[in-house]
Design a binder for these strands. Structure first.
Lengths: 218, 218
DNA sequence: AAACAAGTGGAGGAAGCCCTCCACTTGTTT
DNA sequence: AAACAAGTGGAGGGCTTCCTCCACTTGTTT
């Protein structure tokens, strides 16, 4: 019976200075995670937000919780990209648009992959949104296949494969990383098309949880 | 004027027990690097070789030097794969065989990418072999393009792109990782072929030094 | 404006990493 | 077999990381 319209955070009123600090912390975290990856130290984030570490820890009791909060927007954006695509009447356009957009997000944000693959025991929302995205990907692939645009031997794991591969792209400038990612996606989509395709080696049995870079998080 | 037939290591005679320990260390290191990546601790490597850390450090004054030694075989194998391909009269077969083999090596060994991208200030051999491999890749690509099998808008950076992408593949079993890598390479090679190719987005200007996973090494 | 809960910063604890030191053991040489 | 250099193991130094503690400050309430 909270008065809050959506979201969960409400909880406690929070003093105005505290609220400002919290905002600055999340902004700094997003910035640093995006440009340097999830390995930035808590001290660094604190310094960039102009607060002490204690303040940071008072608001986010663990680094994971900060990561979760920092990427909440991103995963919602992700989910909406999938939702939009599901509303698109053109199956092939929907399919390639989703992959292009998600891969672009991944390429531009160095923390993206790590954030989405590390475990977040506290955040059910996260897992839930991810599961829905996964389901949406499958649906889009099925439609594209049914429409004859996507090769018949395409499997869901090929999406995982592309996301893993795209996660391997790192460059020192965001622009370069994005360009590289775009080219990779274009090449892969070309290969995914149902043109006179020679047979592929059997699809590996993966699952979305494999989109993981072990040393990245934590 | 050493009596040693090839290699460099000779240097000091080394007592037999020490020689055995050294061998065991390198074997353990190779094993652990391959299965767990470059992040395994020196203590771990020492324990797995049945020696104390001091022994390890006496033989390899720094972790980097151990990595270098552990991957010496691999880079030579790499170089010979390139050399073999350069001797192949069929340009397309040479081209795809090289990429398949190198990517397979990378997929099977979790430390591979990190080892080849971190700096090894002491080992000129390493950089030299890498440079030669780079040159060989370029030559093979040129030949494949000249023969009309490789699309005209292919650039050297596309090789880098594939290696980065392939480096993103991680799975908990070696078999799975290899299967995934094989499929990725097959898809990419399909896209590289000179069949009625629609234009690609412009190639990113990379360079082989970008095949890097920042948090991996050291 | 007084009073108090809420908020704050920085020192430092616990753990993990690479690497060093040194008293002890062991292979090798004469 | 005696003597000695070479080799060894494990404690711990220095650093970095995440996170906690507590004396102090500040916004808010009556």
């Amino acid at each position: 019976m909270t008065t809050e319209p959506s979201r969960i955070p409400a909880a406690e009123p929070l003093r105005v200075d505290a609220r400002n600090n919290r905002t600055r912390i999340v902004e700094a975290a997003r910035d640093l995670f995006a440009t340097q990856g999830l390995d930035v130290t808590m001290t660094d984030i604190a310094r960039h937000s102009g607060v002490g570490v204690a303040t940071l820890y008072r608001r986010f009791p663990t680094k994971d919780s900060l990561v979760t909060e920092a990427f909440a927007e991103q995963i919602e954006l992700c989910a909406s990209v999938v939702a939009d695509a599901l509303a698109d009447p053109d199956p092939w356009r929907a399919f390639h648009t989703v992959l292009e957009q998600v891969c672009a997000m991944q390429a531009v944000d160095r923390g993206f992959t790590g954030a989405f693959t590390s475990r977040f025991p506290d955040s059910a929302t996260f897992d839930q949104l991810r599961a829905r995205a996964e389901q949406g990907f499958g649906e889009l692939a099925d439609r594209a296949k049914a429409s004859g645009h996507l090769r018949a031997d395409f499997t869901f794991d090929d999406i995982t494969l592309l996301l893993m591969a795209n996660g391997g792209i790192v460059a020192d400038s965001r622009r370069t990383a994005l360009a590289a990612s775009r080219r990779l996606v274009a090449l892969m989509l070309h290969a995914f098309r149902a043109t006179g395709a020679e047979p592929l080696p059997p699809a590996p049995h993966l699952g979305l949880q494999h989109v993981v870079r072990p040393p990245a998080a934590h």
